[in-house]
């Protein structure tokens, strides 16, 4: 067998960050397709009322959800900044707050579902799409919370130089904020 000369150890190529970016790309297509479906159905509802009249969106809760997502962006950026400075106390604190904000977001979503109390069966696709699109975002936020918990454990467990995971986590939460904005605008603002 021919032997190639050994190479030096490869430089790290940000595997977690690239993987997260690809996942965010896929999730963007998912949310994008769902908002497109929403607009398509709304457009083709014709003379039938798209949104059932009895449905009242609790806008305070939905707006707070959106603001929570934006706030999570700031907090996770704080985690990245602290990780770069080697300040693992603040990094852990920032990731912890992000987890709490994620859980608050999930709680708000559950509250919105309970408050709306919309039966899935209806004359238009509104109710199906409402649950499909908000449910998908809910699942994506759950993934974000789990990702943050895993990152926190790694960081608290001593991998304080593993800044790439924190950057990947931050990227995912930026994506969640963007996805949240799209869903908030589509489902709760333009309805």
């Amino acid at each position: 067998m021919l032997a190639l000369p050994p190479a030096p150890a490869p430089a790290p190529r940000r595997q977690v960050l690239v993987g997260t970016a690809l996942f965010c790309g896929a999730a963007t297509m998912l949310i994008g397709a769902m908002t497109a479906l929403w607009f398509h159905f709304r457009d083709t509802a014709g003379t039938t009322a798209w949104k059932p009249k009895k449905v009242i969106i609790p806008e305070v809760a939905t707006n707070v959800m959106w603001i929570t997502a934006l706030l999570a962006c700031l907090i996770i950026q704080w985690a990245v900044y602290s990780a770069k400075r080697g300040d693992h106390h603040h990094t852990s604190l920032a990731i912890g707050i992000t987890i709490v904000l994620g859980l608050a977001h999930l709680n708000s979503q559950a509250y919105v579902w309970k408050k709306v109390a919309l039966p899935v069966k209806g004359d238009t696709a509104y109710s199906s799409m409402f649950y499909a699109i908000t449910g998908t975002l809910f699942a994506l936020v759950v993934i974000g919370v789990v990702y943050a918990i895993v990152s926190a454990f790694r960081f608290i467990g001593g991998r304080t130089k593993d800044r790439e995971t924190v950057s990947g986590l931050a990227l995912y939460w930026y994506f969640l904020a963007a996805a949240n904005t799209a869903v908030w605008f589509t489902v709760y603002v333009t309805k």
């Binding site: 998912l30 899935v120 649950y131």
Partner: peptide, 23 residues
């Protein structure tokens, strides 16, 4: 990565609609 999520979105809608709404 770009195309399969679009199908997934349609499947989620269809499942929600058919399973719970039967519209």
């Amino acid at each position: 990565v770009l195309t399969l999520p679009v199908l997934l979105a349609a499947l989620i809608y269809l499942f929600a609609d058919h399973r719970f709404g039967a519209r």
